[in-house]
Amino acid sequence: MRPAGHPHDDPAGDVVRWAAFSCMLVPVVLVVYGTSFGGAAVATAGLLAVTAACRILLRHSEKTRRAAARVSVEEPLPPAHRGRHSRVGAGMRRGCRGSGPVSPQD
């Protein structure tokens, strides 16, 4: 049982729990509003299949994210690529086209 007032540690689990709740609620609503039991059963089966597929994808995504976070903590980042227009070197300033050293008048 989680302490009250603390953020959830498993957001994917919360999504799956709400989806399971919906899978149980939707057929009841369908039957109340006149859909046949067979139609409600088909709708329930479809919702359960979609929920199961989403649960699998969420768990896979979580594992991938955790593995990537673990790798990024273990390995240092490569030097940042400055891009074509962001080169900074001796005697070069932004907007300066000369190749020589920068004079105080520039």
Rank of each mutant, 00 (worst) to 15 (best):
L47T: 01
L58Y: 04
P101A: 14
P27I: 00
L77V: 07
R59H: 12
D9G: 15
R65M: 14
P27H: 00
R17I: 06
D10C: 02
R55L: 08
V71L: 15
L30S: 01
A40G: 02
V29G: 01
R84T: 08
V26Y: 02
R93M: 11
P76H: 05
A40K: 01
V32F: 13
T44R: 11
H8K: 08
S22E: 09
P104C: 05
P78T: 00
A41L: 09
R94V: 07
V15A: 03
G100M: 02
P79L: 01
R66L: 15
V28E: 03
L57E: 13
A68P: 04
S103W: 11
P27N: 02
H85K: 09
D106C: 11
R82D: 13
A53R: 08
C54H: 06
V28R: 05
P104G: 04
E62V: 07
G38Q: 05
V26M: 05
P78A: 00
K63R: 15
R59C: 09
H8V: 11
G13Y: 00
H81K: 13
S72N: 05
V32R: 12
L77A: 11
R2F: 09
P101I: 09
A53C: 09
H6C: 13
S103Q: 13
V31W: 04
A43V: 02
S86P: 08
V102P: 04
L30D: 02
A40T: 03
V32E: 11
L30G: 01
V73T: 09
C54E: 06
I56K: 11
A45K: 10
R97T: 11
C54W: 03
S72E: 05
M1E: 10
P27S: 01
L57N: 09
R82C: 14
R87M: 10
K63L: 15
R65V: 10
R17K: 14
S72H: 03
S99P: 08
L57S: 14
A69I: 09
P11H: 04
H60M: 13
G5W: 02
V73E: 14
P101Q: 12
H60I: 10
M92R: 14
R65E: 10
G34L: 01
V102H: 10
R84L: 13
S22W: 06
M24T: 08
V71T: 14
R97N: 11
A52H: 05
A45L: 14
G98Q: 05
P3K: 02
R94I: 08
R97H: 14
R70S: 10
A53M: 10
L58H: 03
A90C: 12
G38Y: 04
R2N: 10
A12Q: 00
R59P: 03
V16P: 00
G38N: 06
L48A: 13
Q105V: 10
A45M: 13
